[in-house]
Design a protein around this nucleic acid. Structure first.
Lengths: 234, 234
DNA sequence: CGCCGGACTTGATTCCGGTCAAAGCCCGCT
DNA sequence: AGCGGGCTTTGACCGGAATCAAGTCCGGCG
């Protein structure tokens, strides 16, 4: 058990899960931990693509700016998620920390060399990328076809599940307090809505007794079944 | 040059591009060509995931049905595109031919075995999946933030580019006749709009002299720059 | 050649979510 | 505790796309 196991947080969910000890040692030599403050960016769209990373803690977003100026978040990154696009020359999206976050950074070139020498690593990354593609396609369906309330319900359910998986406090139990990693503006950017609409829809869910809020970031799911029904409704 | 090279259409863009002759022979032994009529489906969401395939000709769509009944197309598949999700147990989306199409099918288990034995294959699939993820994320931005006219312009430009790349007749030249692989309904499913809105927006583009239509499927881009400007506009 | 059916277009109206504007509230700071 | 500023809520109004409802056109077939 070398130190890199910690670095990758949850051993069996991380990229490094299947590596032998020699490879783990090599990875730990290549990786560099870095803390990010909330709002701090790791890279911007168009930058030279020089790094890959693993999320150790916190939540980050992947986003693009439209030519006309408003933002669309195309993905959220939780602990054990992978950052970066091997083999590409430039970076496709901004990556910004939503909360305080910590990542384990690898320079892209040596990371690619590690992949060539450890096929398990490449295989892990392939499976992960396929899942991410699937996740992204499911979100396409939300943005293309679902109402504001269904989108919001979907986001809340997704956050709840991801927070529970990464052991960041939440649990699937009813009434558990979840600390939202996003502001209203950031939620609007994910959902393809405006901040006002997000606020109104949260209000409706509260009025219906489906959720309760606590301060700006705190949230409790009181009626999971109702929330799921709203997500599935058109 | 074994027969499989034909199967994969464009050698250097296909999955098999980097395989040695022995592996190519093996691939050709495993693959089975299949023709699909327009409208015919290869698989449905929820099916057991038993196959992978390469698109040889024609255009197919990847789509999901919302619980409430309407369809969202989450991706279009052109010649040399890969179909399937190795390592997954079930199928995530319906796959349906939009035009007459031809695919080269592999059973999933032997395909995965081939991947394990030919790391170039795995590497190719990884790069391809990363590109596809990027494509999907860019489309998220369209569905989340763009108006009907910008979405339509984006789709037309994408179709034009993909048809040109796959040598299916179109060319980037002004006024070239493109045969649209989709009906209005199918365009609406991709764009997250209704058929009426698609029709109206096509009308506007015609009135503005940006495009011209020829029958139901024929289309000419008369002012590429204007079309691109509309795509980039909010 | 004319008919038929499905795809497409066009028009009238409705409604969801955006926009603009004005409070209200949380929370860190002094 | 009091204050200030940014985040959030709430309200009035507007507009773009959906919906509902006729038509019209293309293309295949007898």
């Amino acid at each position: 058990m070398t130190k890199v196991c910690e670095d990758c947080v949850v051993r069996d969910r991380s990229l490094c899960g299947t590596l032998d000890d020699a490879a783990l040692t090599e990875m730990s030599r290549l990786g560099r931990r870095r803390k990010l403050a909330a709002g701090e960016s790791l890279q911007f769209e168009g930058d030279d693509n020089i790094l890959c990373a693993n999320v150790l803690g916190g939540v980050l977003k992947l986003s693009s700016l439209t030519p006309s100026g408003d933002a669309q978040t195309v993905g959220l990154l939780y602990p054990a998620d992978f950052i970066g696009r091997p083999y590409a020359d430039t970076v496709d999206h901004d990556i910004t920390a939503l909360t305080e976050a910590e990542v384990c950074i690898f320079a892209r070139a040596p990371f690619e060399r590690m992949m060539a020498e450890n096929i398990q690593l490449e295989r892990q990354l392939l499976e992960r990328t396929l899942s991410e593609l699937e996740r992204s396609r499911r979100w396409l369906l939300f943005l293309g076809r679902k109402s504001a309330s269904a989108r919001l319900a979907g986001l809340i359910i997704d956050i709840d599940r991801r927070m529970a998986q990464t052991g960041c406090g939440a649990d699937l139990g009813i009434g558990q307090l979840i600390q939202l990693p996003l502001t209203r503006t950031e939620m609007a950017d994910v959902l393809g809505l405006t901040i006002e609409t997000v606020s109104r829809e949260i209000g409706k869910l509260k009025d219906a007794g489906v959720i309760a809020t606590e301060g700006r970031r705190g949230l409790r799911i009181l009626k999971p079944a109702a929330l799921k029904a709203i997500m599935d409704s058109e």
